[in-house]
């Protein structure tokens, strides 16, 4: 399991510690009064099919660049203090962590809004793809709203 580092956006194969990531972000500023966390995890079923495994692929460098752009925009547009984003790639089992977004604000309102916006925007703009393994074979997933 990798530990939180100075980098605010990361794409990695290893699992992450939600607690470590939050604790790391709490140290960014003494003015943080609200932290909203989104944790995406591997789900067992999709469209009636049982999923046995997930695989995530990304476009190295471009994906990290998009995540950093997203982070900067979240800070600017929602007035939050900071945000960290970690996304895993490679093979991921059901129930395992996939993606974590930690939005830190002075107050809860901007942190909630920024966090919800960030996960939607990540799915729309970041070159990461998901493949599901089911009893019928492997399927690359189409975007979900």
């Amino acid at each position: 399991m990798s530990t939180a580092t100075e980098s605010r956006v990361r794409i990695q194969k290893e699992d992450f510690s939600v607690t470590d990531e939050i604790e790391h972000m709490k140290k960014v500023s003494a003015n943080i009064g609200g932290i909203v966390v989104f944790l995406g995890t591997g789900r067992e079923s999709s469209k009636g099919e049982t999923i046995t495994k997930l695989h995530f692929e990304h476009y190295p460098q471009m994906a990290e660049k998009k995540l950093e752009e997203l982070r900067q925009k979240a800070i600017k547009d929602f007035g939050i203090i900071d945000m960290s984003i970690v996304h895993r790639v490679g093979e991921i089992d059901i129930g395992e962590n996939i993606v974590l977004i930690v939005a830190c604000g002075e107050h809860r309102q901007e942190a909630f809004k920024a966090c919800e916006w960030a996960i939607s925007e990540l799915k729309r703009t970041t070159p990461i793809w998901k493949r599901e393994t089911t009893s019928k074979g492997d399927v690359w997933v189409s975007p979900t709203p």
Binding site: R43, V99, P127
Partner: peptide, 12 residues
């Protein structure tokens, strides 16, 4: 140049 199918990262 990269050819990019519709993205499907994240979760849910």
């Amino acid at each position: 140049v990269a050819l990019l199918p519709p993205f499907s990262g994240g979760a849910i």
